[in-house]
Simulated scan of single mutants.
Amino acid sequence: MIAWQAFLTNYRLWRRRWFYPLISLVVALSVCLSAPLPGRAFDLLPLLFQGVQIFQLSNISDRQEVDLGKEMNQQLSSEVRLYRNPEVNRYVEQIGRRLAASSDRPNLPYTFQVVQDDSINAFATLGGYVYVHTGLLKTADNEAELASVLAHEIGHIGGKHLVKQMQQKALESGLLTAAGLDRNTAVSIGMQLVRDLPRSRKNEFDADQRGLKTLSRTGYAQSGMVSFMNKLLGKGSTPAFLSTHPATGDRIDALKRAISSQPTNGRDGLDNSIYKTNTRALRS
């Protein structure tokens, strides 16, 4: 009798444990397969059976974002020429990691890479991947100015700006389905956006403010961000870094106001001679 009662109790617990999750899965699949889909038909079950990874960009996890960023990095590695000097790469990596630790998303496995290109440019993709051109490294006069650029790009990652752009692009193109995006489509859209370097006024202001906070928390001089932007505006032709970044003058004014309202004692990175020593390989 006792054994029979124990069996019934265990059976009820087992049924409760598996019944409701099973019902939830069936309902979720029914919604995905029956919901009206924009642009093109989407059959989820074949993709599931093929092992295709589906990304829901509206609530993408850090792990999924890093996974997409890794694949984008592999494609970019065949499109850009990475600068291989170990001293310069270690220096940039050191600055980047110092900033990332004080950023909005410090738990991402950040990767900082130097691109051998004389244009003054820097960009970020997904999951902590940041790229800076040798032309920009040569243009900066000190570590605080370089750190301000890296902090700005980290700010884009903190705000998930590229993820949001990818979602909007997929929606406009009719590629976003009720289930989300498959891996290849997501990477393709991300790469297209990175190549085109689209910049919205809202995202740039947000990345500036996030970057300034990161710069301040890390102890770098806030003036580095303003001085670097002013330096670029003073050049005869518009650098790539600014040509895709709208309203630069307004951004500088906004940064000055933010610095005035929340000044810090940070003075790190203003020694020009130390910076030149650490980047001397670029000038040899």
Rank of each mutant, 00 (worst) to 15 (best):
Met1Cys: 09
Trp4Asp: 03
Gln5Tyr: 12
Thr9Ile: 08
Asn10Trp: 00
Tyr11Ser: 09
Arg12Ala: 03
Trp14Lys: 00
Arg15His: 06
Arg17Tyr: 14
Trp18Lys: 11
Phe19Thr: 14
Pro21Cys: 04
Pro21Glu: 12
Pro21Phe: 10
Ile23Cys: 12
Val26Cys: 11
Val26Pro: 09
Leu29Asp: 05
Ser30Ala: 11
Ser34Leu: 14
Arg40Tyr: 07
Pro46Gly: 10
Leu47Thr: 12
Gln50Ser: 03
Phe55Pro: 02
Ser61Gly: 01
Arg63Pro: 00
Glu65His: 05
Leu68Lys: 01
Leu68Met: 03
Gly69Glu: 10
Gly69Lys: 04
Glu71Met: 07
Glu71Trp: 08
Glu71Asp: 02
Ser77Met: 14
Glu79Arg: 14
Val80Lys: 15
Val80Tyr: 15
Arg81Ile: 14
Arg81Lys: 15
Leu82Thr: 11
Leu82Cys: 05
Val88Cys: 12
Asn89Arg: 01
Arg90Pro: 01
Val92Arg: 03
Gln94Pro: 01
Ile95Gly: 03
Leu99Pro: 00
Ser102Asn: 11
Ser102His: 07
Asp104Val: 12
Arg105Tyr: 08
Pro109Gly: 06
Tyr110Gly: 15
Gln116Ile: 09
Asp117Met: 11
Asp117Leu: 07
Asp118Ala: 09
Ile120Ala: 02
Ala122Ile: 10
Phe123Tyr: 10
Ala124Thr: 07
Val130His: 13
Val132Ala: 13
His133Leu: 14
Gly135Ile: 12
Lys138Arg: 07
Thr139Met: 06
Thr139Asn: 06
Ala140Lys: 08
Ala140Gln: 04
Asp141Leu: 05
Glu143Gly: 11
Ala144His: 02
Glu145Leu: 14
Leu146Gln: 09
Leu146Ile: 10
Leu146Lys: 09
Ser148Ile: 02
Val149Ile: 05
Gly155Lys: 01
His156Gly: 11
Gly159Gln: 10
Lys160Thr: 11
Leu162Pro: 05
Val163Ile: 08
Gln168Lys: 12
Lys169Glu: 14
Leu171Pro: 06
Ser173Pro: 02
Gly174Val: 01
Leu175Arg: 13
Thr177Cys: 01
Ala179Pro: 05
Gly180Trp: 15
Leu181Gly: 11
Leu181Gln: 06
Asn184Leu: 06
Asn184Met: 05
Val187Pro: 00
Ser188Lys: 03
Gly190Val: 00
Gly190Ile: 01
Met191Tyr: 00
Leu193Ser: 01
Asp196Thr: 01
Leu197His: 13
Arg199Phe: 15
Ser200Gly: 07
Asp206Ile: 11
Asp206Gly: 15
Ala207Val: 14
Asp208Val: 02
Arg210Pro: 15
Leu212Asn: 03
Thr218Cys: 08
Thr218Gln: 11
Thr218Ser: 10
Gln222Lys: 10
Ser223Lys: 04
Gly224Arg: 09
Val226Asn: 02
Asn230Tyr: 00
Phe241Ala: 14
Phe241Arg: 09
Phe241Thr: 13
Thr244Leu: 13
Pro246Val: 00
Arg251Asp: 00
Asp253Ser: 04
Lys256Ala: 07
Arg257Val: 02
Arg257Asp: 13
Thr264Gly: 04
Gly266Tyr: 13
Leu270Tyr: 00
Asp271Thr: 02
Asn272Phe: 06
Tyr275Gln: 12
Tyr275Trp: 01
Tyr275Asp: 10
Tyr275His: 04
Asn278Gln: 12
Leu282Ile: 04
